[in-house]
Design a binder for these strands. Structure first.
Lengths: 275, 275
DNA sequence: CCAATGTGTTCCACTATTTGGAACGCTGTT
DNA sequence: AACAGCGTTCCAAATAGTGGAACACATTGG
């Protein structure tokens, strides 16, 4: 059958850390440039890019020219580069037609109806979790963002849940690439601590984020094992500590796990029996 | 100064209609594949792609393999291809840091507060308008989508507004590429009609969508001329006919134009004086 | 005022990468 | 069993990307 590994993006994200080549030849180099532009907070100019990319000026210049021509990158303010509109368009299309998201959506809503708190659906990609969907109460400050946003695996509920679905080998490989950053006093800051917690998560079937990413925010999450192991994902209910107690969070445990299981079932229904 | 034309995406979108090569070499071919996958409604299999791409099987196969490796495309259900997660991540980053959007946002909110109806911010890209931001009342069915969504230029308020900011030459070039599709009885279905309406829009400074895209929906829009002519954009207030009369819509005209002008001013403030 | 430095851009011979015809190995069909 | 359709791999040939060097414009400073 189909080789063409996706490998849950383990290898895929080899250059998430914007290093040079990949096994992808020209395309890889082009994407490295895109990633460099995406990674920068302050707008970059040509020389800035040249500094982070380590390629001859001439080469880089042409690569950028191509990226601009393709609408993946844009030249603005007549000196700085930003990501292009084509990405927005493609992402919208991707989001709108993602089978996984479509199947999961009703379950997210149900979970939100039950808890009244924000529900997230996240997928593992390299050493990050990417949020693919979200249902939240009223958004005082709306953030269409969040969807598509990336968070670290090691300090988020979905992140740890997703990790727990991987084989030990894959987990170890990933661990090497994680750079642990302490975000709060509760953040797990090394591979050992994380490994130990993963064991718990595998046994219990739930993971918690106990204010490990943002102070004052905690969550319950459950892993979603995809049928074909091509996807490592998780679902979570997030809430501020001041409103939702640790005990309350644990009471939602069953609901969250239930939702995750329901999503898996629906996936098997609609993808399993030979489509 | 900087060549590296962006050209408002006129040339950029040369292969919006998923034709073969571009002047972009390898990258262009890769993006053609991505675009083909994005364009399809029903999931495509390898042979489907091979049919629409016109490249030798072997070549296409390797291209796809690279795209998968890079996370731009994903192989799912073990036979069909979809767009990859990396696009979501990049788009989110792009959206979150877009200067244009950030500057425009407060004005969109003000306009929404005034009218109570949905406000859109759209940018011209090739023969389409891409919605870059949106403020809406209560979303019964939420659609984070819409943002990033593409609509035709010739039958939307923002589309026509954006067109009106272009030089005649560019407009003509674009017209050639538009394939006019009648969406409602009021849709403009040929270049002549559109050209005539553009003259009105240039004179009046507003454009209307009089149920030209969707029956029962109309809108007022105003063009945003970007300082450096690198961007052709527009802003609009959209409402259902049953609730908002044509007259009411025209009463908002000044507000919409005002908001568009305010956005331009803010842009000049923050980009003009040598940053 | 004219060198000197720091940008961004173009040229073109060299070479690494992409190319695609052909052959292979599946799975399902007649 | 032979056949047909799909997906996958190989490798010589050719194309497309590379990058050192030189150019054109700013801006700086001696």
């Amino acid at each position: 059958m189909a080789r063409l590994d996706a490998d849950i993006g383990l290898a895929a994200s080899a250059n998430d850390d914007l290093r040079l080549p990949a096994g992808t030849g020209t395309l890889g180099k082009a994407m490295a440039v895109v990633e460099a532009i995406a990674a920068a907070e302050r707008p970059l100019r040509f020389r800035d890019l040249a500094a982070r990319i380590d390629q001859p000026k001439a080469t880089l210049h042409r690569q950028i020219a191509n990226l601009i021509e393709e609408g993946l990158v844009e030249l603005r303010g007549d000196q700085t580069y930003g990501l292009g509109l084509r990405l927005l368009k493609l992402a919208a299309r991707s989001w709108g037609t993602s089978q996984f998201r479509l199947i999961a959506e009703p379950h997210l809503r149900r979970l939100h109806a039950l808890t009244g708190e924000t529900v997230h659906l996240g997928v593992l990609r390299g050493v990050e979790v990417i949020y693919v969907d979200k249902v939240e109460s009223q958004q005082a400050v709306r953030m269409h963002s969040q969807i598509g946003n990336a968070s670290p695996v090691y300090c988020t509920g979905v992140g740890k849940a997703a990790l727990s679905t991987l084989a030990d080998g894959d987990v170890h490989a990933l661990m090497q690439k994680i750079s642990f950053v302490r975000h709060t006093p509760h953040t797990l800051t090394d591979a050992d601590a994380l490994t130990r917690e993963l064991a718990d998560i595998r046994r219990e079937g739930v993971s918690y984020d106990r204010e490990e990413h943002e102070p004052g925010i905690h969550c319950v999450a459950a892993p979603i094992h995809s049928v074909d192991r091509r996807l490592a994902a998780g679902i979570s209910v997030t809430a501020p500590v001041y409103r939702i107690s640790r005990a309350q969070l644990e009471d939602w445990r069953e609901a969250v796990v239930g939702a995750a299981d329901a999503i898996m079932e629906d996936m098997e229904m609609r993808m399993g029996p030979r489509s």
